[in-house]
């Protein structure tokens, strides 16, 4: 009877232990990555390639998501405002929502699937096929070779991709407004400017930068700790996407509490 009653407590304890160990292991990898910055000649040449893979190659999916988000935001704003609020507030809602929330978060979540999964699967496969050991035997520090270029590339490129996504969302909202909502361009732009603060852009870019850092570093962490064969790689990939998506949402709330 006591055992049954204590089972949830035990499960909570086990879960807390696993979580704490995982956070500790991720933190340790981040510290190693900071230390590995001294091997500039190893990570610098690889960073540009990673910026292309992580950033440039992610632009189409980010723009696709942002475009449809902008369309839906404009239509839902018009539906909500019917009669009660002037229609130019569509511009306010599209602009503010894309900048403060949906641009960074949706781009972050989409890229956690695309980039986080890719990093985790690639490094995980290298782990289980002994390619990481091979790097070490060839006198390469694996963290400098694999982790640093990806984390730097993600931290730089996520805000750039997010900025493009925000712009695309606003343009899509504007086109929707003038084509489907009988709103003129000056009205939409007036709405857009009404409550705009330059800090909105800073806020979006701070969030996107933090998302880039966590998605890439968590992807590297799961990849580095892959065990077993193909099944292990699959587990790591799923784990990386789930963990980075959750951390993105937690960080989203954290920045809102801290900065707004």
């Amino acid at each position: 009877m006591t055992r049954t009653l204590l089972a949830p407590v035990r499960a909570l304890g086990r879960g807390t232990r696993v979580f704490t160990l995982a956070v500790g292991s991720w933190g340790s990898l981040v510290v190693d990555a900071v230390r590995a910055l001294r091997w500039v000649q190893i990570w610098a040449p690889l960073t540009l390639r990673q910026m292309t893979r992580i950033g440039v190659d992610s632009v189409p999916i980010a723009l696709f998501i942002a475009a449809f988000t902008g369309i839906v935001l404009a239509l839902q704003a018009s539906y909500t405002f019917t009669g009660a609020i002037p229609l130019y507030f569509v511009g306010v809602l599209v602009g503010k929502t894309m900048m403060l929330e949906l641009g960074p978060v949706l781009t972050g979540l989409a890229l956690s699937g695309r980039v986080g999964a890719n990093i985790s699967a690639e490094i995980g496969t290298m782990r289980v096929t002994e390619q990481i050991d091979a790097l070490e035997t060839l006198a390469y520090p694996p963290v400098a070779y694999l982790v640093v270029p990806r984390v730097i590339a993600g931290t730089i490129m996520f805000p750039l991709v997010t900025a493009l996504a925000i712009a695309m969302g606003i343009v899509a909202g504007w086109i929707t407004a003038i084509q489907l909502l009988e709103l003129s361009t000056p009205e939409f732009v007036n709405g857009l400017k009404l409550f705009f603060l330059p800090f909105d852009v800073t806020y979006a870019l701070i969030k996107a930068t933090s998302f880039g850092f966590v998605v890439t570093s968590i992807g590297c962490h799961f990849g580095f700790n892959t065990k077993g064969g193909a099944e292990g790689v699959g587990r790591s990939t799923t784990g990386a996407v789930v963990a980075s998506s959750m951390v993105i949402l937690v960080l989203d709330a954290f920045w809102a509490v801290l900065l707004l």
Binding site: M126, T129, E130, Q131, D133, A134, E136, T137, L138, A139
Partner: peptide, 14 residues
């Protein structure tokens, strides 16, 4: 490691 070469079981080629 520069003076000890290592040949892996499944080659571990990149």
């Amino acid at each position: 490691r520069r003076k000890v070469g290592f040949v892996f079981q499944f080659a571990a080629l990149f």
